[in-house]
Design a protein around this nucleic acid. Sequence first.
DNA 1: GATGAATGAGTCTTCATTCAT
DNA 2: TATGAATGAAGACTCATTCAT
Lengths: 229, 229, 229, 229
Amino acid sequence: MNTGSGSMEAPSPRRWQRRKDERTGEIIEAALGLFCEKGFSATKLDDIARAAGVTKGTPYLYFDGKEAILKAVVRATLIDRLGEIEAECRDYRGSRTVLIRRLMLKWWDEVGSTELAGLCKLMVAEAANFPELARFYHDEVIVRSRALMRAVLLDGVREGEFRPMPDTDAVIDALQAPLLMNMIWQHSFARFDESATGSYTKQRLETTLDLVLAALTAAGTTRQGNPTT
Amino acid sequence: MNTGSGSMEAPSPRRWQRRKDERTGEIIEAALGLFCEKGFSATKLDDIARAAGVTKGTPYLYFDGKEAILKAVVRATLIDRLGEIEAECRDYRGSRTVLIRRLMLKWWDEVGSTELAGLCKLMVAEAANFPELARFYHDEVIVRSRALMRAVLLDGVREGEFRPMPDTDAVIDALQAPLLMNMIWQHSFARFDESATGSYTKQRLETTLDLVLAALTAAGTTRQGNPTT
Amino acid sequence: MNTGSGSMEAPSPRRWQRRKDERTGEIIEAALGLFCEKGFSATKLDDIARAAGVTKGTPYLYFDGKEAILKAVVRATLIDRLGEIEAECRDYRGSRTVLIRRLMLKWWDEVGSTELAGLCKLMVAEAANFPELARFYHDEVIVRSRALMRAVLLDGVREGEFRPMPDTDAVIDALQAPLLMNMIWQHSFARFDESATGSYTKQRLETTLDLVLAALTAAGTTRQGNPTT
Amino acid sequence: MNTGSGSMEAPSPRRWQRRKDERTGEIIEAALGLFCEKGFSATKLDDIARAAGVTKGTPYLYFDGKEAILKAVVRATLIDRLGEIEAECRDYRGSRTVLIRRLMLKWWDEVGSTELAGLCKLMVAEAANFPELARFYHDEVIVRSRALMRAVLLDGVREGEFRPMPDTDAVIDALQAPLLMNMIWQHSFARFDESATGSYTKQRLETTLDLVLAALTAAGTTRQGNPTT
DNA sequence: GATGAATGAGTCTTCATTCAT
DNA sequence: TATGAATGAAGACTCATTCAT
């Protein structure tokens, strides 16, 4: 009757709620690791469950199935990061050149160089097999990230920091592709590449950034000194 | 009675032989189409067989299994093309700039812009799941194609057409990555991209080529100091 | 609130557990029957499952595959019996002649004259096709049963009950072979043998035992002379 | 019309006949080796054909199928030998003891110690799977060989060489079983038996023969008593 | 007679998902 | 909420047998 010590027997609704959220998080966490490591198909739901400390049936109490878990994983990681970055951009005042460099490096540090890279590669690999998932990723990650870059670039143009660019999408590609290629490479052929010839590094990423940003500001030619650095 | 041409003396071992060769080709053809369209795992051997106009067991008369079929497909397409290109390079005398442009456009025309693109994407997607297959592709396609480019680039440097480049692999990446990205894109998210913002075209490929080749030869010009790097 | 017996605290993990144990037994039981009746290769896993009242996939929850099931069957029957017999021997004090007779008759009653005989025949029949299985049987059944007999025989010799025997293995063969032959016969040609000429019976088994045991003790007679050999 | 030089184009019927017989023999020969070595199921018809120097379809021109080939193999080997032995017995005049020893040793030399042993083991192993085959073997090999022995034994009794025996079948078993066990052992567990404890040898076979024959004639000695039984 | 390409029934095995407890 | 036993659809691969040539 005394609930003083009985908290474990009859947890408050909120407590359950918290537990529920935790469970969700634990499952997402577990799934993230396995998906990134082994890919989507090769990851068994049983593995996810066990890694989350629950049993086979439990994930179905929180998610509609394997695909839904992947969706949740993407949301909890990539899309979250994207949200942060978007917020950062909204508040930002200052050099777009600096901003772009910062965004790219953040993405590298928090995604490209982490296990999350495997998630991006996974989406590419499975896109054809799971159209609904692919659309979700396309709309929520790809489109949004491109939109973000586009906005920054156009802001830069409007404010005179960048010269007008005839094909914004090409610029976005030029910025993002190397990073994406690296993520894909790491999770496909990197293991066979003893000399690591194909591996991107942060160093190389920065070189690419310098190059593209230099080109964007190059029009400044007469305007000022040597940009890039 | 006199069988003038002796057609009966050769009871067509050739006929069967021919059929056998054709079968191999037909199966490879069928497999190519299905692999490119649906990926490796999603393609059932039964589908391949039916698409080739035979039944389930027949492909096993010609190949050791699904992986072997994929290997044969890669050999019959990508590796063949690569061989042609290698031969072309061996005999070539002339501007390396022209040669590189020609190679890249050939690859675009014969692979990048065809269904074969799906094969490249497939290998990336399944590399993690089929290590033996991945190694084969890595050694026979990736390594060889990079070696080819490296040779051409170094020739160009030796003969003074290109300026010395500190990181050949980075240049190779710069040349190949856009094309590869395009192939991957086409077979993953392109279908969701109504505005086709992410799509490479031959036009864009040429732009990239111009850019990189210009950078490679730029130093040779008397024009000015050290660009890029 | 006070749950007197606490029946709710243990929400029947035991219930499932019990079911699980039962399942294993049911599958082994079903497999035993089918293996003995139809042999190993001719028994489909689907049959086993159905005979156990479950569906195709279920046996895989309990065993690694068909061979593993057979192993389990052998363990649960022959090896278990062997264990009992070994225990019986360890504790035994008394006439080895009596002991050997008892062991042989036990084996006859619990194996030779039951469906388990089919299991022994099966192992002989499939030994060449499943080496790993055969080695298991060889090591766990054949070697152990021979070792057991050898120990008893040598004990008998040491204690003067049996005369020294130049070739223990030959004696073991003489004791075991008739029983084994019978088991093999029952599950191969017995069905075609209307007159049952080739069939061993318990009676004939006892005759053989008498014969061999008599020979083993015969030397004890004052007659000496040249026994057997 | 002139067949002078046309012998190859139009061979005489007899020539074809000969060829046909040869083919049959070659296939039987090839099948024998493979059956003995690998068992019935594990031997592919394709293997037999190739070993016989023909192709897959050819055996079907001479036999109704795999089972029929095995039948032919048994006929051409075991049943043939049996026929010889039967003939030998018919003409024989002299000691039955000597005759039995001779028969057993012949069987050992020509079957037990040769690859043909594998055939006997095969029949035991597959009897349950191929009833029609098993009946054939039972009737043509087992029954006949037992009848042969029985006749010799009874002749011996009639002529006073052997003492009357209450259970002729038991005696036949005693004579044949060791040899059969050896054949089975060689093709099942012998390979796992490093110490070769279970292996019969010609030596051991002779010992058994001595033993049984001694028992059969023992009564004839002045010693009288009631032996064996 | 001989070939050998093709057939297709047969079986093991995996795993996402369900549901009684 | 959590369990975990059970399901059953799906798919790769084998090989005896057939038959057009």
